[in-house]
């Protein structure tokens, strides 16, 4: 039985690795694109005028108010009817990035607003303009404060990238389904997939935690990190 499972695992390995590659690709690209989108939206919400702020709020609330799967279906099934056609991978990347951008915007906004207003005043009093103050004083602090939330977001994306399976992206879950459908060994296959995700989750949490420690500065974000440590 054990050796049987061993050889089964080995036979499945190429497919699983292939799927894992897509899962990581989806996760990394969408967290990165979502990050820039999120920063832009967050800055727009905090520092933008009424119109920009309204636009950002609208985007964030619409995306956060609807399921990721609906967003993917609109992009992948809906848009071709108006002539915009994406491959499954493209559609998944776009959907995940757009989605993550809205969530990242919300916690980045929280971190930006948690930087005391005196920091901005002090920067301006030195002769920095608003953009310089944001770049050299506000963001370096806000980004550090948001690391724990960012870590959660990474885990979410890692897991929600599995939804791309539904629009035929051959990521980890899809490969699992494929192997299971051909071998009828559903339980082992999905247990295997579950373990892989679990290990990815634990490892990435650990890595981000180390990065956070490396970047930590006395007095910044300390309280928040302690409260999230136990998660």
């Amino acid at each position: 039985m054990a050796t049987d499972f061993g050889s089964f695992f080995l036979n499945s390995l190429p497919n699983l690795l292939n799927g894992l590659g897509y899962t990581l690709l989806l996760t990394f690209i969408s967290i990165a694109v979502g990050f820039f989108l999120g920063i832009t939206l967050a800055l727009g919400r905090v520092y933008g005028n009424k119109i920009i702020n309204g636009f950002c709020v609208g985007y964030i609330e619409l995306i956060r108010g609807t399921p990721l799967l609906v967003q993917l279906f609109i992009i992948y099934f809906g848009l071709p009817s108006v002539g915009i056609i994406f491959s499954p991978l493209q559609a998944a990347l776009i959907g995940l990035a757009i989605n993550s951008g809205a969530y990242q915007a919300e916690y980045l906004r929280g971190s930006i607003q948690s930087v005391e207003s005196g920091q901005m005043t002090a920067a301006r009093s030195l002769g920095m303009n608003k953009l310089q103050s944001i770049r050299h004083v506000i963001l370096p602090q806000a980004l550090r404060i948001s690391i724990p939330a960012w870590s959660n977001e990474f885990i979410y994306l890692l897991q929600y990238s599995s939804i791309a399976y539904i629009i035929q992206v051959a990521e980890l879950t899809a490969e699992g389904k494929f192997i299971a459908a051909h071998t009828f060994r559903y339980l082992e296959v999905f247990a295997m997939i579950a373990v892989i995700y679990l290990v990815l989750t634990i490892v990435s949490t650990e890595i981000i935690d180390r990065i956070a420690k490396h970047l930590s500065i006395p007095g910044i974000g300390a309280a928040k990190r302690v409260s999230l440590r136990d998660i």
Binding site: Q159, S162, I193, A194
Partner: peptide, 23 residues
């Protein structure tokens, strides 16, 4: 808690719906 938070919901669905019937 750690295990259930570490597995995508879709995989959990598959485990319950496709996997468990095997036993």
């Amino acid at each position: 808690e750690k295990v259930l938070r570490g597995i995508p919901l879709l995989v959990l669905f598959f485990l319950i719906y496709f996997g468990l019937p095997q036993i």
